[in-house]
Amino acid sequence: MPAVEVHSIYKSFEDVKALKDISFSVEEGELYGFIGPDGAGKTTLFRILNTLLIPDEGTATVLGLDVVDDYKTIRPMLGYMPGRFSLYQDLSVQENLEFFASVFGTTISENYELVAPIYSQLEPFKNRYAGKLSGGMKQKLALSCALIHKPKLLLLDEPTTGVDAVSRKEFWEMLVDLKKQGIAIIVSTPYMDEAKLCDRVALIQEGSLMQIDTPLNIVNGYDRPILGIKSRNTYKLLQALKLYEWTHSAHPFGEFIHFTEKREKPDMIALEAFLLDNGIDDAVIKEVEPGIEDSFMALMRKEVASD
């Protein structure tokens, strides 16, 4: 039985179509990512899965139960971490965890083993108010609170947004460990680089799913050779590439600009000559492998083109 099964869900808020024909399924013990920017519909989808919102059309089951008819049975089986920090700021670390345990009719000691790897890092601060914790620690406490009743499915809505690169990395290490315990995890993020840590990812944009696959397959499906080009003056380089007749796309990716051509095989020598003519005499050009973000952007262009 899949952990989650969604068929053709639609949800609108007045004129805004937040979700359009969303279908997907998540297997037991899978780490499943929803990757997309703000406003893509991720939070709406999470609220439907956690039974807080009813879809306009379509059906969804969680652990084999219907999200509309069986919401009471589903709720104790879920662990949910909302996008906005929503623990009690004026309760201590320990009081928050005790509170969430008691709401679900359990105790910290009963399920300590599951939260221990995460919660033990907070124990030195267990008497501190939750409101006084750092961003990274708040995140760990929120995850502990979502886990304390041993849920079968974890829904994590943008747990790493606005969090620095170090805490983000630690958080993902924790998720990979939790997955080993057999808990299915659905996580959303606007950071494309986090996609590669998921078993499968769904790329979502403006309420529609663009693609669902393993990170590897998504990247392998990228159908154009990419050249990485760098120069001391990135802006000038970007301007020049926009004038080049064979340019299909040119986007900054860190140090290099990722460049694709309209023709099947890019001509590096012609490109270098063109750049030289346009005053860029220090261009370094090399072949680069596509990443999830390249694929996401290519899919976004296709969606715009087919609109």
Partner: peptide
């Protein structure tokens, strides 16, 4: 933060353009 990858890059083009005009840019990012 949270901006889609295409718009994020368009945003940076505006930053480059501003810097090119002589505006000093002091920016934080994750």
């Amino acid at each position: 933060g949270g901006v889609d990858p295409v718009t994020r890059r368009q945003f940076w083009e505006r930053i480059y353009e501003a810097a090119d005009k002589g505006i000093t840019v002091f920016v934080t990012t994750h």
